[in-house]
Computed example of a mutant assay.
Amino acid sequence: MKTRHLMLASLVAAFAAAPAMAQQNTIKLGVANVQPHSSASDFSGPFTPGGISVEVRNKTTSFFSYTREINDQWDVELALGDSPTHDIALKINNPGLPASVQSMSGQVAATVRQVAPVLFVNYKFLEKTSPWRPFVGVGINYTNFDKTHSTAAGDTLNGGPTSVSLEDSVGLALQGGVTYRINNQWSLSAALITAQVKSKITTNTLGIERSADIKFRPRVFTLAMGYSF
């Protein structure tokens, strides 16, 4: 919890440190399709057979960002949104396990919410008056996983009531997109965001802990309406 507060404070401080001489601010509101593209090692721990892993499924949620312009080509953007809750599905790949266990492959074993603010520095191509302006950005992503919940399937597989936790992650983030200027105040934008996200998922069932390393190669597609002032 302390790490989460420190990272959020750092992102806010960095954003606030953008030059006060900014020419324009823009608020964007829209939708985001979050595709985690996760891959995980097999779970390890006491009384844990091989071939049991998980994958995190896609989710669509709302998108929000606040941008402060530095000059005609550069801006600083804090990208947020309504934190999505993802399903964590089982992957069973061990023919030696009982059929009842193998049949659980694909079932949702847990759910987890991700809180993932991203601070970008963006470069915008073409002139400020151009209707279409492609842009690219580089930044830092902080991902916190909370509100985890083990489902009935997860409890059954683990052998009893189970708690689930995932470690926080900090990594590089990149984005590319295009903005269409409707007029001086309103615009439409579309972007693809990706980031480096690594974590460790741990389950605890009656004191027995099992864990797996999990990597994400997320692709977040956003479509948003912007208002500049």
Rank of each mutant, 00 (worst) to 15 (best):
S130R: 11
K215E: 15
V136W: 05
T203I: 08
L80R: 04
S163P: 05
A79Y: 05
T148D: 06
D87K: 15
Q23T: 12
V220G: 08
S199V: 04
G106S: 06
S53T: 14
R219W: 14
T85Y: 08
R133W: 11
P49H: 13
L192A: 12
R217I: 08
A195Y: 01
P131N: 06
G159A: 04
A13E: 11
L157W: 09
L119Q: 10
V118A: 01
F47C: 03
F145Y: 15
F120G: 07
Q107F: 11
S39P: 02
P36I: 05
L172C: 11
G159P: 00
D155C: 13
R68N: 07
Q107N: 13
G160T: 05
A116E: 14
A13I: 12
V54K: 01
V108M: 00
F64W: 06
L90M: 12
R181C: 11
S189D: 15
D82E: 12
V178F: 13
K215C: 05
S228P: 03
S10A: 11
Q114N: 15
S39K: 13
T179L: 07
Q185N: 15
S130C: 09
V112F: 01
A13Y: 10
P95S: 15
L157R: 05
A152N: 07
Q73A: 09
A153C: 02
Q35W: 15
G207L: 04
E69T: 06
V112N: 03
T222I: 03
R68G: 14
K200S: 14
S211P: 03
